[in-house]
Write a protein that binds this DNA or RNA. Structure first.
Length: 282
DNA sequence: CATAGATCCTGTATGC
DNA sequence: TGCATACAGGATCTAT
């Protein structure tokens, strides 16, 4: 459920609370929460200071001062990164605890479904003067990244023969978009998610991209989307963009364009919500 | 290579 | 009341 706007809310909170602090404790409480890690998480992190907090798509990473290494995190479906006083009781699904030498609030990775995880990784060049963890170099830039190449993305989709929603969800083509914002962007663009990319005009694909950007920016301005207590910022607070959703989760509700009931269909082992009148399969 | 589908996980909601 | 089933879905792995 955390997509680009929700992850960016977390990034901003982390940047405020952990930048410059020195790690002195790393406790892994669930082995599955540490993924693709070549070394030992505590060994890599204890004694190091956090330089800043970066994000690409739904991935977060915290580069360490004076080292080409970063702590990488992905929230998956139900992951949370919380700032908590050391005295706070352990959360039921606490997976990783990171303590600091200043004895201030701990950084806690809490994850009910363990689809998310943390890991350390080497930083490599991102080809534009920046750095990115090597393990996420296959993740494309997200549409709010100034270096995202819009023309290349439009051309890439025109050359493919797959469904447009599938392409929106493919993080190696464009990152940060998940099921919620894919449905919202498609609704705004009046496109059915099963339309084939090759059959769309460059102008229409570009219009869809603009809708994806605007809906995610709008959600970011409202602190993200939340349906339950699972998605929260670093202080445990929920966003309220769910009140502004037009398609996702709106089965049976009137379409904001034409009033026809929003329909729900199975797609890629999940649900798609769309207006049967405004978004035709063609 | 490109694309499609299965799989991981656990709490909540629903049906019989 | 209790049990079984469906559902939520991001990323990765496997199959075609």
């Amino acid at each position: 459920m955390p997509e680009l706007p929700e992850v960016e809310v977390v990034r901003r909170g982390l940047a405020e609370h952990v930048t410059g602090r020195r790690i002195n404790q790393v406790e892994v409480l669930h082995p599955r929460a540490v993924r693709r890690n070549t070394g030992s998480l505590p060994e890599d992190l204890v004694g190091e200071r956090i330089r800043c907090v970066s994000r690409r798509g739904k991935y977060l990473w915290l580069p360490l001062v004076g080292d080409q290494v970063a702590l990488v995190a992905h929230l998956g479906m139900s992951g949370q990164l919380l700032m908590q006083p050391a005295s706070a009781p352990d959360e039921k699904h606490l997976r990783v605890r990171i303590g600091f030498a200043d004895a201030g609030p701990q950084l806690r990775f809490v994850d009910q479904r363990t689809f998310g995880g943390v890991m350390t990784a080497e930083l490599v060049s991102d080809g534009a003067g920046g750095h990115v963890p090597d393990i996420i170099s296959h993740i494309s830039r997200d549409p709010l990244d100034p270096s995202f190449d819009e023309v290349a993305w439009v051309n890439c989709l025109r050359g493919k023969n797959t469904e447009i929603k599938r392409a929106l969800l493919d993080q190696s083509l464009i990152s940060g978009i998940g099921n919620i914002y894919a449905d919202e962007a498609l609704w705004r663009a009046k496109l059915h998610g099963r339309r084939l990319t090759g059959g769309l005009t460059p102008a229409k694909i570009h219009e869809l991209l603009e809708h994806a950007k605007s809906v995610m920016k709008q959600a970011l301005g409202q602190g993200g989307t939340s349906f339950d207590a699972l998605y929260v910022n670093v202080n445990g607070e929920s966003g309220y963009f769910d009140r502004s959703l037009n398609a996702y989760g709106q089965e049976g509700e009137p379409c904001g364009h034409c009033g026809r009931p929003i329909r729900r269909e199975k797609f890629m082992n999940r649900s798609s919500f769309f207006c049967p009148r405004c978004q035709r399969r063609g």
